[in-house]
């Protein structure tokens, strides 16, 4: 099967000599939900900019659904829908006009453009705002408007650059549900995000980019499996003593009802429960202290620094 996106030895140097990308390669399969992660200035937005023609590459090859952008960029662009990080629509235009016009730029006839615009405005909860000037929308609504605009020509590959930045939790969850739905319907999604919880919750595969190089490219599951250590917080029924010793594990009493336990790779948390049970401490619930992916991300990025 042809990949949704193929990048080979992609490089980008700016006029001031700064090398934003140092020959990265990655592949995204059709139907994937893919996360591109990295700290600020790592090269994520440059990579996305090259894919959608806002940035000129210095070298390498990019193909979208098998179409090389150097050979037929207009054909490749038809496969792509882009949701940028910054709001990039005319704040004085009406919501519906923005989406209908975008359909026109892809050559969709007026009636089809109107039908598609209405469909996505309804699906993204913007129907009531369709005749409102876009500047009047809230931040979350503006992000959804950009998603509706990116989807109006029904691309096979949707690229979202920090789509939930500045969006409240409820709206973020509903956006996640929408993205899961269109991914299930066959749209390949590439996502950059600073919320690693978001990548862990949504994505199947992941690439981590740092200093213009790919430092990790694997499935989220494999990545998490390689974590050497996890930290759990156990909520206990009774009052805890000042210190609780669990043989073979590092522990720390956070407060009179909460105990933090570090579990190294190869250790079993059942041993913790067994020892606490023998000590008369009843555990009522437990949770991860930190986002697991975040921990891995920090390890990889700091390791490459």
């Amino acid at each position: 099967m042809i990949s949704a996106l193929t990048i080979e030895n992609l490089s980008k140097s700016y006029g001031n000599g700064f090398q934003a990308l140092k020959g990265i390669s990655l592949e995204v399969k059709q139907g994937d939900f893919f996360a591109l992660l990295g700290p600020n200035g790592a090269g994520k937005s440059t990579t996305i900019g090259i894919i959608c023609s806002l940035v000129s590459k210095s070298g390498g090859r990019v193909a979208v659904h098998g179409v090389d952008i150097d050979e037929d960029f207009p054909a490749a662009k038809k496969f792509i829908g882009i949701v940028p990080q910054e709001f990039n629509f005319n704040q004085f235009e009406k919501v519906r006009d923005i989406v209908v016009n975008q359909a026109g730029y892809y050559g969709l006839p007026a009636q089809q453009a109107a039908e598609r615009a209405d469909k996505y405005l309804k699906e993204l909860g913007l129907w009531d705002k369709r005749e409102v000037a876009s500047r009047m929308l809230s931040g979350g609504m503006k992000r959804r408007l950009m998603i509706a605009r990116a989807l109006v020509h029904e691309p096979k590959l949707l690229i979202l650059d920090e789509p939930t930045a500045g969006v409240d939790i409820e709206m973020r969850r509903s956006m996640w549900d929408f993205l899961r739905k269109i991914n299930a319907e066959g749209t390949t999604i590439i996502l950059t995000t600073h919320y690693l919880e978001e990548a862990e919750a949504l994505c199947r595969n992941i690439a981590i980019i740092n200093h213009g190089q790919i430092v990790e490219h694997s499935s989220v599951r494999d990545l998490l499996r390689r974590l050497h250590r996890e930290v759990f917080i156990l909520d206990c029924a009774g009052m805890l003593p000042e210190s609780v010793a669990v043989d073979g594990f590092v522990t720390r009493v956070i407060d009179e009802h909460s105990l933090e336990v570090e579990v190294e790779k190869g250790q079993h948390i059942n041993d913790v429960f067994a020892q606490l049970d023998r000590a008369g401490i009843q555990v009522t619930s437990m949770r991860n202290r930190a986002n697991r992916l975040e921990e891995m991300f920090v390890n990889l990025v700091e390791g490459a620094a």
Binding site: P74, K77, P84, N90
Partner: peptide, 18 residues
């Protein structure tokens, strides 16, 4: 220039419009 200033020109640049 307005569309360059508010970046809405990107709507056209990312599209296949020649």
């Amino acid at each position: 220039f307005g569309s360059k200033f508010n970046h809405s020109v990107e709507e056209l640049l990312v599209s296949p419009t020649p």
